[in-house]
Simulated assay, not measured.
Amino acid sequence: MAASAALTLAAPSAQALERPKGRVVLTVSGRIGIRNAEKTAEFDMDMLAALPQHTFSTKSPWYPEAHKFTGPLLRDVLAAVDAQGKNLRAVALNDYKVNLPVGDALKFNLVLARLMDDKPMPVRDKGPLFIIYPFDADEILRNERYYSRSAWQLKAIDVLE
């Protein structure tokens, strides 16, 4: 992926990011240009729902049947905070961490799923947020490399160099 890949995520305008009115479900930190807290960008579920929504159905290693996932594209969340890095560290509620390249968000329609089968996802079922790849859309995605990058129970994203 070209070094300039992160630059394509710049927000279309330098609008301020509103402060969350509800419970914060996602915190984005690191190399970001737009913040709504001291050093981070915080989102509540309504803020994520206000971004353009994307839906796909896919099979995955975690569910025996295909499920429908809905939420903003990860690249749209990164654009909303003017992400300037080339790599991301996704952090789950249990502090599990996984790194993934920003290039994945540019190349594939990764969804920051907030709904599964049109319903909010409880923590016990990989919620409230789940970075999910469209595994059925491209055969290249059906392997351990991409399965391991699908972070569930997501609470934070750190934008890295």
Rank of each mutant, 00 (worst) to 15 (best):
N99Q: 14
L93G: 10
A50C: 01
N109A: 14
M47H: 05
R19Y: 00
R31L: 14
A10E: 09
V77T: 05
S57N: 07
P128V: 10
A16F: 00
S4H: 10
H67R: 15
L115N: 09
E38P: 05
T58S: 15
A16V: 05
I132C: 07
K68E: 12
Q84F: 03
D118M: 08
P128H: 09
N87L: 12
T58A: 05
R35N: 08
A113P: 00
E42K: 14
M121Q: 07
D82V: 03
K86G: 14
V98Y: 08
Q53E: 04
N87K: 14
G22V: 02
P12F: 06
R75W: 02
W62T: 06
N94T: 12
A83M: 02
D46G: 08
V77P: 03
A92F: 04
A16Q: 10
R19Q: 15
A92T: 02
P52Q: 06
D125P: 00
K68H: 02
V24F: 02
N94I: 08
N94K: 07
K86E: 11
P64G: 07
T8E: 12
D125Q: 13
S4G: 08
A11Q: 09
L73C: 04
P20S: 07
K39I: 01
R89I: 11
I131A: 06
N109W: 01
D82Y: 06
P64L: 04
E42T: 03
A79Y: 02
D95A: 13
R114P: 01
H67L: 12
N99G: 14
L129T: 05
T27L: 02
A49T: 07
D118N: 15
E65A: 13
V123W: 03
Q53T: 00
E65I: 11
G127E: 10
R75Y: 06
Y133L: 11
I34W: 01
L115S: 09
D117R: 11
Q53A: 12
K107H: 13
G85F: 03
G30R: 07
T40Y: 03
V25H: 02
R23C: 00
P101G: 15
K119H: 13
A10P: 00
Y133T: 10
L51R: 05
N87W: 14
R89D: 01
G71S: 11
S4Y: 11
L129A: 12
L9V: 10
K86V: 03
R23Q: 14
D125C: 00
E65N: 14
E38A: 15
A90N: 00
G85Q: 06
V77I: 13
A105W: 08
L129D: 04
M121P: 02
E38L: 12
P120R: 12
P61A: 04
A37T: 09
G22R: 08
L51G: 08
G103K: 13
N87P: 00
M45P: 00
P52D: 05
S29Q: 10
A80I: 04
S60I: 09
A105Y: 09
F69Y: 15
V81D: 01
L88K: 09
A83Q: 06
S29I: 04
G85T: 09
V123G: 02
Y133N: 10
D95V: 03
D95R: 14
I32R: 11
L17I: 06
V91R: 12
A83R: 03
R35A: 12
G127R: 11
L48Y: 07
A16C: 00
M121I: 11
A6K: 12
A5K: 06
L110G: 05
D46K: 13
D82S: 15
G85Y: 04
V98D: 03
P122H: 02
R89S: 09
K39H: 13
